[in-house]
Computed example of a mutant assay.
Amino acid sequence: METLMDEGHNMTVLRAKKYHSFTQAAWIEKHVTRAIESPNVNKRFSHLNRLIIGSEQICDDIRKHLEHHSITKLRKNGVLMIEFVLSVSPSFFKQPNGAYWPDANERLKAWVNASRDWLLKEFGTNCLTAILHLDEQTPHLHAICVPVSKSFNKKGGVVHRLNARGILGGRDKLSRLQDSYAGALAPLNIKRGQRGSRATHTTLKQFYSAVNESKRICAKAALPAPDAAPASFNSWQAIVNRLSDNLDSIHDSEINKLKGIIQELVVTNEKLRHEVMSRRRNQ
């Protein structure tokens, strides 16, 4: 594959989260298949989302995968599945002015193919599902993996069990996965993110908190809340900041009015004091 031109500092993004129950798996299934609404989703583009690996029946596929490997009991608090989120810097798809690169579609296809190949090479049949989302701020993949591992019992028989520690046991293993993913994207001139970075991402919980905060501030300022959900947490945050500035401005205006009233009272009080002293001297 021809190497794409290097525009800016394009970095890999690879995050992982463990889930312990089918209840959580069902929620993830609804979220990634858009069966439930999310405020950070632009529904106008949801029809562009597409399945890259497996099927959208995540819970059913997990059950079949466990049954196929004769795993019938789940340990309490054991990890049932791991969700990986794969993406790259927005600059890989967009120019500094916000417009897409002329070859953005080619870039997207190359990144998706490289990411799919990496998932299958790294996790094999344990990677049950990968879904591409194009209805949020930056294209990204949600990959669902069930951490089935193979070992041998004392009689030499094959035994399968769930073993998330074999994949995410400690920071070193996640770091190795991030190194591996960066290696798979190297032909696209996408580099590994900063090692040991403390950079954080916006969770849905944080997003909803921002939404609620914006509504609270709108109500406090007697302003109408936005009708449509913005495309990202950052735009919500911008709204919150603008409204906060407006409130500060209103607050400052009210304080200035109060200061004026207080100043008038001070002047009036001073006049009265002088009048009282003058009357006393004349008595």
Rank of each mutant, 00 (worst) to 15 (best):
S21R: 12
F22I: 12
F22G: 05
A25G: 11
A25L: 15
A26K: 14
I28T: 08
I28E: 11
E29P: 03
E29I: 01
E29Q: 13
V32L: 07
A35H: 04
I36R: 07
S38M: 08
K43S: 09
R44D: 10
S46L: 12
H47N: 06
L48S: 09
R50N: 07
L51Y: 08
I52K: 05
G54R: 07
S55N: 11
E56C: 08
E56G: 13
E56I: 12
E56K: 12
Q57R: 12
I62K: 02
I62M: 14
H69V: 06
S70Y: 11
T72P: 01
L74R: 02
G78M: 05
L80R: 03
L86I: 04
L86E: 03
S87Y: 00
S91G: 03
S91E: 04
K94N: 02
K94Y: 02
K94G: 00
P96K: 03
N97Q: 08
G98R: 04
Y100P: 02
W101Y: 10
W101Q: 03
A104E: 09
E106K: 09
R107N: 03
R107G: 01
A110G: 02
V112T: 15
A114D: 02
S115W: 06
R116K: 14
L119Q: 01
L119E: 01
L120C: 06
A130W: 11
L132Y: 00
L132M: 02
L134E: 14
D135P: 06
P139S: 06
A143V: 14
C145I: 15
V146K: 08
K154N: 07
